[in-house]
Simulated assay, not measured.
Amino acid sequence: MSPSRFLLAVLVLAAAVDLASLAAGFDAGHTATKPLLMPLLAFWAVLRRAPRPLVAALLFGWGGDVLLLFDAEPAFLAGMASFAAGHVCYLILFARYGSRYTVPRTRAGLLALGYATALVTTVTLLWSGLPADLRLPVAAYSLLLTAMAYRAAIRLGLFAGLGGALFLLSDTLIATGAADWPQPPRPDFWIMLTYIAAQGLLACGTLGALNARRAPAATYGEMRAA
C-alpha cells in the first residue's frame, strides 16, 4: 500500500470513529479524534502534490476545529477567525489554480443569485437570535464563506462546488445553534458529517482538477520525448 493510500485509510478510520462517537454521545472519542482529521487530510494532500494554499486552508480548518472544542465565546470567535483565514486561502487557491470556464456564464450568474439570496435570507433570519456581539462577526464570516462556496463551484467544478455548499450547510447549522433555533437530534453529528465531507470534497476536487490539467502536458512531453 502506498503512503497516500495508507494515510487515506487512517483518515477514513478517524472520521468514522469521530462520527460514531458523536452519534453515541461519547464526548471523549470526539475530543480525541476531531483534532486528527484535518492534519491527516493535509498530509495526504501534500503527498498528492497539493498546492500550498490548499494545505494552508486545511491547517486553518484544524485550528478552528481545536478552538471550537472549547465551550466559550472567545474560543468560538477565535475558531471562526481561523476558519475565515482558511476561506481566504481557498479563495487564493481558486484564483491561482481555477479555470474561468468551468461553469457557463449564465449558470454562474444563476448560482451567484442563489448564493446571494441564501446569504441575505440566512443572516436576516438569524440576526435577532444571535448575541449582539456575534452579529457582525457572523455576518462578515457568512459573506466570506458564501464567496468561497461560490468560487469553488465556478472555478474548480462539481466536486469542489459540492464541498463549498456542504461547508456552508455545516456552518449554517452551527449558526442556528448559536441563535437557539430548534436543532435536529445529535446536531454535532450532522455538523461534523457535512464538514468532513466538505473539506474532503474541496481537497479532492482541487487535486482532481489540477491532475486533469497536468495530464495533457505530460502526454505532450511524452510525445516530444518519443
Rank of each mutant, 00 (worst) to 15 (best):
L134T: 02
G163C: 08
P131F: 07
S142A: 13
R213S: 13
P35K: 09
V120G: 03
P182S: 14
L119S: 03
L111H: 00
G208S: 10
L37M: 10
M1V: 08
F94T: 08
A218F: 06
A225Y: 07
G114L: 14
A32L: 13
L59E: 10
Y220C: 02
A28K: 12
V138P: 08
L77Q: 05
R49Q: 12
A9M: 12
S142C: 01
G208M: 06
Y150T: 11
A209H: 15
R151K: 03
R5Q: 10
L40M: 14
A112P: 04
G164D: 13
A95I: 06
F60C: 15
G177Q: 14
S170M: 06
M80S: 04
L111V: 00
T102C: 12
G205V: 03
A209L: 07
G177V: 08
F43T: 10
E222A: 15
L166V: 03
M38G: 04
A149M: 13
A20S: 14
A203M: 14
T146M: 10
D133N: 14
L202A: 10
T146V: 14
F60M: 12
L119P: 02
F26W: 15
G25V: 06
G221D: 12
Y97A: 06
L40N: 12
T102E: 15
I174Y: 01
S170Q: 06
L54C: 06
S21P: 03
Y150R: 02
T194I: 02
I92T: 14
A56Q: 11
G200T: 15
G205D: 03
L130R: 05
F76N: 04
A81C: 03
A23K: 07
Y141T: 04
L67D: 00
F189K: 05
P137H: 06
T172Y: 03
Y101V: 08
A147N: 02
A15T: 13
T194E: 06
R213Q: 15
V66R: 04
P137K: 08
D18M: 06
L134Q: 11
P35Q: 12
L130W: 02
P185E: 11
G79P: 03
A24Y: 00
W62S: 15
G163Q: 11
A147G: 04
R224V: 13
P185K: 02
A20L: 14
L111P: 00
D71T: 11
L22F: 02
A197K: 01
P187V: 07
L77D: 01
F94R: 05
A198H: 10
P182A: 14
I191C: 09
H87D: 08
L136T: 12
G64H: 02
R96K: 07
R155D: 12
P185D: 13
L58F: 05
T176L: 11
Q199K: 09
V120P: 01
T172I: 01
Y141W: 09
F60Q: 04
A179R: 00
G163S: 10
